[in-house]
Computed example of a mutant assay.
Amino acid sequence: MGSRRNPAIGMLVFMALAVMVGSYFTFAAVRGDYGLFRRAEVQAHADTLRTELSRLQAEVARMENLTRRLSDDYLDLDLLDEQARDVLGMIRADEIVVR
Rank of each mutant, 00 (worst) to 15 (best):
H45P: 00
A40D: 09
V98C: 11
R69H: 12
I91A: 15
G89T: 04
R68E: 15
N65S: 09
Y34S: 12
F14S: 05
D81G: 11
I91Y: 15
E59D: 14
M15E: 12
R62E: 10
D78A: 15
V97H: 14
D72T: 05
A46N: 05
V60Y: 09
T48V: 07
A44V: 01
R5A: 11
L49R: 07
Y74H: 06
R69G: 01
H45I: 02
G2L: 01
D73G: 09
L75V: 02
M1F: 06
Y74C: 01
M1Q: 10
L66F: 14
F27I: 02
R4V: 01
Q83Y: 10
D86R: 10
R55V: 05
E82Y: 15
A58Q: 11
Q57G: 05
A58W: 07
G32F: 00
L79I: 02
D73S: 10
L77A: 08
V60R: 13
D33T: 05
R55I: 03
T48M: 08
L79N: 00
R99G: 15
E64Y: 06
R31V: 12
R5I: 03
L70M: 11
S71N: 11
R5L: 06
V98A: 11
E52K: 13
G89A: 09
R38Y: 10
L70D: 03
T51R: 13
M1T: 02
I91G: 13
Y34H: 08
L79F: 01
I91F: 15
Q83R: 11
G89C: 15
